[in-house]
């Protein structure tokens, strides 16, 4: 890797998340954290490191393994004027606590006719690629984005990770903050170096609900989020060598979904490939394609394609999991078929 200019401050996503929470906790005494091993351990994925030391155990609370209990408690605390940030260690664990999330957190605002608010953040790790098998490797983006009442974001790099966390804490609505383990900047999880980027020290927000064109192109639009963006960028690099100009859209948020940025990009390129590490059917990829075709199908020069996780539980064995995961080769193959 090239030496970086000295004015750059490159952070991992883990560090960027921790810094955003630190600054929000310094700024706002109602912000506090709850989760398993987020205290002295600093979070299994490093995203609360240093916070226990600075803010102590009242505001950085290690919890029992009782997700229904502490996520419901966050709902109650949020409705009582606080801004809890809670961690569901692996998104796969949502099965033990989903009522607290989608029947309480996501609906109380609506049930109250907008008179009550639930300003909380639920951060949770997603993604596989390191052989952790079918109960510790899922993405489940579509599962959360499907249910109304909660915003859903997933950063692809540290700059967005910090700004999204700041925005999520300040948002008066519940926000699901999904961070991909393979982008965390933790070498023990086989990290993607492209996620570690220049990140300003001062606090700032990245708008929730706004996608980003992270690479401009003319011939095809590659849409993804989190790890999907990096796969798309790598595919775009290789397509460029063949003279194909690919545009890459980082969705950043799933709810609200920035349909306009996707529509505008496809209007320009005429071709759409969605890259999604979540399961193939009934998910983000179908939603993006529907968005484009519903808007104006005549803009498409070819049938849209998707590179997704097949509809099978995630296998343990490395070669089986790698067969299933999206990658640049599959994206290029999808383009060639167009």
């Amino acid at each position: 890797m090239l030496d970086q200019p000295t004015n750059e401050r490159r952070l991992t996503i883990a560090r960027a998340m921790a810094e955003a929470m630190q600054q929000e906790m310094q700024r706002d005494p109602t912000v506090f954290l709850m989760g398993e091993d987020i205290g002295g351990f600093g979070g299994i994925f490093g995203n609360t490191r240093g916070l226990f030391e600075e803010f102590g155990k009242e505001r950085v609370r290690d919890t029992p393994i009782s997700e229904t209990g502490f996520i419901s408690a966050a709902v109650g605390a949020a409705m009582d004027g606080m801004r809890p940030v809670v961690e569901l260690m692996f998104v796969d664990f949502f099965g033990v606590c989903f009522d607290a999330i989608y029947n309480q957190m996501a609906k109380n605002t609506y049930f109250s006719g907008g008179n009550a608010s639930v300003p909380m953040v639920l951060m949770t790790s997603t993604g596989g690629g390191y052989s952790d098998a079918g109960q510790h490797s899922q993405c489940l983006y579509g599962t959360f984005a499907h249910l109304p009442g909660m915003k859903v974001v997933s950063p692809s790099n540290a700059y967005d990770a910090k700004g999204l966390m700041t925005a999520a804490v300040r948002d008066d609505n519940p926000v699901i903050y999904m961070f991909h383990k393979g982008l965390q900047g933790m070498g023990w999880l086989s990290t993607e170096p492209g996620a570690t980027v220049n990140t300003p020290e001062s606090d700032y927000s990245v708008e929730i609900g706004k996608a980003k064109v992270v690479r401009e192109g003319r011939d095809v639009t590659l849409v993804g989020l989190a790890m999907g963006v990096h796969n798309a960028l790598k595919a775009a690099d290789r397509l460029a060598e063949e003279g194909v100009s690919a545009e890459v859209v980082d969705l950043v948020s799933l709810v609200p979904l920035d349909r306009e940025t996707v529509i505008n990009s496809v209007a320009k390129t005429g071709r759409l490939i969605v890259v999604d590490e979540d399961y193939h059917s009934y998910g983000v990829s179908g939603e993006i394609i529907a968005t484009v075709t519903e808007h104006d199908i005549s803009k498409l020069k070819a049938s849209p394609a998707r590179v997704t996780y097949p509809d099978v539980p995630i296998p343990y064995a490395r070669h089986m999991e790698q067969l299933c995961l999206p990658n640049p080769d599959k994206i290029i193959a999808a383009y060639r078929k167009m």
């Binding site: 393994i65 664990f93 052989s131 098998a133 079918g134 296998p315 343990y316 064995a317 070669h319 089986m320």
Partner: peptide, 29 residues
């Protein structure tokens, strides 16, 4: 993660299943 494994490599160490002796596993607490 081998073919001769209890689950042909699909389960791994947290998901050991051996119906012959009525043994099942979950990685969820």
């Amino acid at each position: 993660g081998k073919a001769t494994g209890l689950s042909g490599g699909r389960g791994g160490h947290m998901h050991l299943f051996d119906p012959a002796v009525n043994f099942a596993c979950s990685g969820i607490i």
